[in-house]
Structure formats: structure tokens, C-alpha cells
């Protein structure tokens, strides 16, 4: 996977296009440092599911956007197996405002769509790493804004909705 040009501390340019100014809710995702001989940045997807049922809405997908050829970066999107089943498999990649390159370890903030109807939701973040593990973290939240936080154990760090 090619190194991202985006530094961890900077706002996400791609995801930023769906952000509404000021008061919109956002989620901060932490990708942990993992000390292994062969490290590849994880593929990570985040989506919102209404608790009452209904379609999942993808809010970001980080994958190897640049890799083309015989084995394009999209090949491993299905490794984000829950996201893939919840709607990823029917998305056209890359998707404007949703997809971006894989991220190095660090914390990243992504806007949550401002036009979610009031109600209870679960934000899910799934990470899958080449030659590594896979993890799914759920963070319940509600609209109007009531945040939440949860932590992964292996492939994801703290996920906080504000």
C-alpha cells in the first residue's frame, strides 16, 4: 500500500467535503501502532446503521486507491466483510467524498452526515489489515447529538463520536 500524503493531524480532505460547518457531529478514529515485522496500513470503513432497522450508510472507506493492474486495491475491499455485506458490495469505487487512501497509525476525524433523521444509531468501524487481523467496533449514538465512545482491542483504538 502506498504511503498516504495526508498527515494524521490534518483534517481529512476527502471526508471533509461532506462535513457541514461548525456544529455537525463527527467521529474520531484511532489507528493504533502495531509492532510487527510486516506492517501494512489497514483498510478501514465506517458506516451508520439506524437501530430501528434500515439501510446502512457508509461514511468513509480507506483503501489502496492507487493500486491498479492485475490486483487492484479494490480487490481486498471484501475483506471488510461486514461492511461489504451491509452495502459495500453495491458501492461503486472510488466514491466521491467517501473514499480515500489508507491511513498511517494516528487519529483522524470524519464528519457524520448532518442530514441523518433524529433517532438512535450505531456507528460501526471495521478494519482489516494485510497479513494482520480484522476488527469491528460499534459505537451507539443518537441524533440530535449525543455522542459515545468505544475502543477496539487489536486493529482499532478509541472511536469517539462528538
Amino acid at each position: 500500500m502506498s504511503p498516504s500524503k495526508i498527515l494524521p493531524a490534518l483534517p481529512l480532505l476527502v471526508a471533509g467535503t461532506i462535513a457541514t460547518p461548525a456544529m455537525a457531529a463527527s467521529v474520531t478514529i484511532t489507528i493504533p501502532q502495531i509492532k510487527v515485522a510486516e506492517y501494512h496500513r489497514p483498510y478501514v470503513a465506517g458506516w451508520v446503521e439506524p437501530v430501528a432497522g434500515g439501510n446502512a450508510r457508509t461514511i468513509f472507506v480507506w483503501y489502496d486507491v492507487k493500486k491498479a493492474g492485475r490486483e487492484p486495491g479494490t480487490k481486498w475491499l471484501a475483506d471488510l466483510r461486514t461492511w461489504w455485506r451491509k452495502g459495500g458490495s453495491s458501492m461503486k469505487m472510488p466514491a466521491d467524498g467517501l473514499t480515500g487512501a489508507t491511513r498511517a497509525p494516528g487519529s483522524y476525524t470524519v464528519a457524520i452526515p448532518a442530514n441523518l433523521p433524529a433517532g438512535q444509531y450505531v456507528l460501526k468501524v471495521e478494519a482489516a489489515r494485510e497479513t494482520g487481523g480484522r476488527e469491528l467496533v460499534s459505537v451507539p449514538f443518537s441524533v440530535p447529538a449525543k455522542g459515545g465512545t468505544a475502543s477496539g482491542k487489536t486493529e482499532l483504538g478509541t472511536i469517539t463520536i462528538r
Binding site: R70, P72, K75, A78, W84
Partner: peptide, 8 residues
Amino acid sequence: TTLAGTNE
């Protein structure tokens, strides 16, 4: 049973 893309 699950593949991404039509190159596989």
C-alpha cells in the same frame, strides 16, 4: 464465495 470486482 465473495469477491470484489470482476477481475477475479
